[in-house]
Write a protein that binds this DNA or RNA. Structure first.
Length: 512
RNA sequence: CGCGGGAUAGAGCAAUUGGCAGCUCGCCAGGCCCAUAACCUGGAGGUUCUCGGUUCAAGUCCGAGUCCCGCAACCA
């Protein structure tokens, strides 16, 4: 038996400075949908997520709330883990950067880069704002003062370690020229390629420990800790055992996709590959950059007070419709908007009137006209089969492969409409009155089989709804899920005579 | 003149190499009675941001301008 193809994908590790908001859930969700889809394709998927807990802001927040920073890190990370559970995210591992396994291995990574001659010490002088506890550039200042603290920063000199990013200018250019898919979508690729072409400077990758005691110690230098990005990025390999027990690393690395938000594209598309080259590791295949969510057309912010709590929203509307809405409405390669009105509109149109109603409509007729059993088929409807196999499935898979889950779901809606049209067209209730029962059976068989296809297609986004539909069709979801997509998408998989499960509306309409 | 994306029906989006401007929601009118007042059919609604150019033909190509937005080392 050939070895299963692997697929390793990650989310960014969110900075656990505060509670998760819906943006974090969105990223986990995009990644989860891809993970589930890849599993359906029969691949051996490994899905990593976690939290980034080091750095100035965490340290400051802990100090302000008067709790040990380790405790804050653990507490906030637990919230992110709860979020993943609640949202039915199928990650295989959850890494926190303050775990020993990560700290040890991140230090190994540092040593590897050092061994390549890419780390050197340099005096750095800059304008330091005591209020921010950070260096500022001239551009950050307003009238020579820090805009947040209205104080003039002081000129401070500090000796830090630097990473020779500039050394990788050419290899990175080569990478971008050779691999146009390295950053997806294209607009983000172009953005980064332009930054790259304008020339890369070496970057500071450590901070003095006096200023920041909360971080991973630089190997061999007790006075310095690693800069958060150098620390955080390595999580993608430390979680696989880099530098210690590399069984998973050998199996799954390089990553097939790092799923990230647009704001951290530079780190992933430029710094990270350079770091990997330095450490002698292979490069990830794709950096998949998603957009942001706005709420009622506005950027989410605490000041405006429109931040959506991902735990609250799934309590209010239940999980699967929320997963559906986000995947249908927020295109991966762009920003998308959330509003209660839009949610209800989508819910009623696509889920209640579309999917839910069709399921109920078909199965009620099976109960009414066919004794509640999947009927015998006399004559196959080649037109429908052709439509499904030549148009719907190829479109669906093309969109899923390209992270365009919105378009994939649109394709499903199109097929649902097609089924509704078929019912209106053939009028099974009239056929039944005329006693043409074999025609009724043929039609209902095809509709049941169509429902099965729909259930398969929605699985990555709405796994529980998918199972409910399969159960109502009298199928065993566990058995179905064990099959590969190539098998599942072929026609005529239903067992004739299968007793259909108990009918229950999937998505009762929402009021206004 | 830092780099890049965009402006299309009330809203959100589509339009392979230029070739009758489409889809979803909403709205209006019919139909149907299997279904969750659901579903199906038809209709109204557009100076495709502005001005100029190329062409038999421009949403699409070229030039100028207006307005939004993204990126520019730590907001998913």
């Amino acid at each position: 038996m050939p070895k299963k193809e692997t697929f390793y994908l990650t989310t960014a590790i969110p900075y656990a400075n505060a509670s998760p908001h819906i943006g974090h859930a969105l990223e986990a969700l995009y990644t989860d949908v891809m993970a589930r889809y890849q599993r359906m394709l029969g691949k051996d998927v490994y899905f990593l997520t976690g939290t980034d807990v080091h750095g100035q802001k965490m340290f400051k927040t802990a100090k302000e709330s008067n709790i040990p920073v380790e405790e804050l890190a653990a507490k906030n990370s637990a919230e992110f883990e709860n979020l993943d559970d609640r949202w039915n995210i199928t990650n295989n591992d959850f890494i926190r950067t303050s775990e020993k396994r990560h700290e040890d291995r991140a230090q190994e990574f540092w040593k590897a880069a050092e061994k390549s001659g890419d780390i050197y010490k340099k005096k750095y002088s800059g304008l330091y704002c005591v209020g921010c506890e950070a260096f500022k550039t001239e551009k950050d200042l307003v009238d020579g003062k820090c805009p947040d603290h209205h104080k003039e920063p002081e000129l401070l000199e500090e000796e830090n370690y630097f990473f020779k990013l500039s050394k990788y200018q050419e290899p990175l250019e080569f990478l971008f020229e050779k691999n146009k898919d390295f950053v997806y979508p294209e607009s983000r690729y172009n953005e980064m390629y332009n930054v790259l072409k304008s020339g890369l400077d070496d970057v500071s990758i450590s901070r003095s420990k006096d200023k920041l005691p909360w971080g991973i110690p630089v190997p061999g230098d007790k006075t310095q800790v690693m800069y958060v990005w150098f620390d955080a990025l390595t999580n993608y390999v430390t979680a696989l055992g880099y530098g210690e027990d590399e069984k998973l690393l050998k199996k799954y690395w390089p990553a097939d996709a790092h799923v990230i938000g647009k704001e951290i594209n530079r780190f992933h598309s430029l710094l990270w590959p350079a770091m990997l080259m330095s450490a002698g590791l292979e490069l990830p295949k794709t950096i998949a950059v998603h957009g942001w969510m706005t709420v009622d057309g506005q950027k989410m912010s605490k000041t405006i007070g429109n931040v959506i709590d991902p735990m609250e929203i799934v309590t209010k509307y239940s999980l699967e419709p929320v997963r559906y809405f986000l995947m249908r409405e927020i295109p991966f390669d762009n920003d998308g908007d959330y509003s209660d009105a839009k949610f209800k509109e989508r819910f009623n149109a696509d889920l209640a009137n579309g999917l839910g109603n069709l399921t109920n409509r078909v199965l009620s007729m099976v109960v009414k006209y066919c004794d509640g059993k999947v009927p015998q088929v006399q004559e196959k409807n080649d037109e429908l089969i052709k439509y499904l196999s030549d148009e719907i499935w190829p479109a669906y898979r093309k969109f899923m492969d390209a992270w365009r889950f919105d378009r994939a779901l649109e394709t499903v809606s199109k097929f649902i409409t097609h089924c509704d049209q078929m019912i209106s067209d053939k009028k099974p209730w009239t056929l039944a009155k005329e006693g043409k029962m074999s025609e009724v059976s043929d039609l209902l068989y095809h509709l049941c089989e169509s429902l099965r296809h729909i259930a398969i297609m929605i699985y990555p986004v709405m796994p529980e709804t998918s199972e409910k539909i399969l159960i109502q069709l009298g199928l065993d979801p566990a058995k179905e899920n064990a099959k590969s997509l190539d098998k599942l998408q072929t026609w005529v998989e239903l067992t004739v005579g299968n007793k259909i499960g108990e009918l229950q509306p999937l998505f009762p309409r929402l009021e206004k």
